[in-house]
Design a protein around this nucleic acid. Sequence first.
RNA 1: GGGCGCGUAGCUCAAUGGAUAGAGCAUCAGCCUUCGAAGCUGAGGGUUACAGGUUCGAGCCCUGUCGCGCCCA
Length: 639
Amino acid sequence: MLPQLESRIVAAVSQHILIRYGLSTPVVLEQPRQADFGDFAIPTAFQLARELRKAPRAIAQELVDELPAIDGIRSMEVAGNGYINLRLDRPSIAVALAAPSVPPPPAGKVLIEHTSINPNKAAHIGHLRNSILGDTFVRMLRAQGHQVNIQNYIDNTGVQVADVVVGFHFLEGKSLDEVRALTLLPRFDYLCWDLYAKVSQTYATDEALKAKRAETLHAIEAGHGLLAEMGSLIADKVVDYHLDTMLRLDIQYDALPRESEILHLQFWAAAFELLKQRKAIYLETEGKNNGCWVMPGSAFSEHREDEDSKVIVRSNGIVTYVGKDIAYQMWKFGLLGQDFYYRYLRTYPDGQKLYVTSASPEGATPDITFSHNDRVYNVIDSRQSYLQDVVQAGLRALGHPKEAKNSVHFSYEMVALTPRTCTELGIELSEEDRARPYIEVSGRKGLGVKADDLIDKLIAAALREVESRNENEPAESRQKVAEQIAIGALRYFMLKFTRPTVIAFDFQEALSFTGETGPYIQYAAVRAGKILAKSSEPIAPLPANLEPILADEELWQSLLAAARTDSALGLAIAADEPAHLARYAFQLAQAYSNFYQKYPVLIETDPDKRNFLLWLTATYRAQLVRTLGLLGIAVPAFM
RNA sequence: GGGCGCGUAGCUCAAUGGAUAGAGCAUCAGCCUUCGAAGCUGAGGGUUACAGGUUCGAGCCCUGUCGCGCCCA
């Protein structure tokens, strides 16, 4: 509702500036630093000052004097040395907020790839940041009308899966049937976690075992034989666990594109032909890369010519990682000229179906595709930014600048552990490490916090709180509420940091449910719900004369805070930053907590005011539920 | 050596080039005979790493220096 008003203001001011001064200076609306300055601020006079060679304050005064009336604006005034502060027509904002919301207009088709965990061990907290960021951004885009499809890429033929096969088969001498039996036992993913660490450490001293790694990898890539079968058995089972873990966080996918199908359907061969045709790569004939197909450094580095060229196909004919990624990125946009087959995999509790790629039409679901997207977000940590740049350059070199521009590396920094948390986990640290602010997790060392362990721990902590506060609720409901609180705490924790910030994960901090946390926001929504439930009377329509009620400055500020949800969503999407929306959710909860403290609703004796307070409570509740929903956080029935 | 990111209160972090740099935690002082305190009110705490520059205006942009992290070689 506020966005419409905002764009109306921007349009009116821009148009006036164009006519009056002949300038198309962009107009931005700000939220004033102090509430008593006004409801919106326009700093455009400062920009105009340069071009008009005139004092900003004088320009602001001209604008205020000459601007036509804008619907919904009560007054404009010049402030500071050139701000224009706007005050809104309060009753009309309340009325607009009370009106039913209109669905957003349909927007473009977007692909978000997230999670993409190597299917060789249990998920850890670092993976959670990826999935929660990706899933939240999906929810945000969908709320703006985008048609989003969610993909979780599975590298089921990579070296990491090979390592676990090496572990089972060569290190522990297990047969296919024995491994199959193990996959049926609980927590096979945890078993792989330990085995992967063991194998990685054994490589350091056991050359013979290390030699088995390459043999195993080749067998898996070829796709037949005992080792390949064992690899796919392990990967499929571990993927199942990942899907279950993510479902606990309310995270779902539409499709699982797999590396095995990219290989078997020879996506790379098609991409290779196109790259050669368009002269995006060339065969190096000298130097260290002699005999390799390379992409020149100038293609992906704007400023420097002397950047090393990037090898796409090695001299032994084996395509690199980047090469395969370019082929896959082309497929995402529908530029490859071929597609996967898709096989039904499972149905989520809400009825949504999940598909996995397949190399043959047999058993495939006809008439679906997950290709041909307008825009692609790859949620991948910042360590891969160089590779993502090369992939993007590949598209550009192939003559697809638009798609290159619409390839977004949605990058984020890693999740590390605080030294204190390492110690709690029984991990020994060197003197040097103890002095560091954080310790990087490592699957090879088995150093990390498993996602499910963390979730279990959070639920246990939440359950203790819930039980101490809600003795009369049935155990089953308390369990459910504890789960919702735990997930709320976890999701908010992963979202409150901006993407380039390294999260130093600390158990004590993550297990805290006070202050700027998910449960604080949930609590605000639950309190609002409780008042609404206790009030026996239905909420009457807003009274005709709202002016006296809204003359109360604090009450007005409270209402305005609740009206900013869509603006906050818009800003967060424009900045590709879910943390902005998370922060708004917290501010919204703070605003409600203040309102709750200051205005007791149910004992208010003036019926008009009481009805208004009830209405505002319902509005807050709705905005809190909606904003939390965008963050993937549920609102418990009680707390 | 090159590339990317970071450096803000005791700690962890915010801050679309704009007004007096804000939150949470921690510390201290208050508020429960409940619309349940997972809350609220208040206090103290800042040379935004350093040095220049651009600008009407810089935590943010540019250059350099120092420190930290990651990636590539």
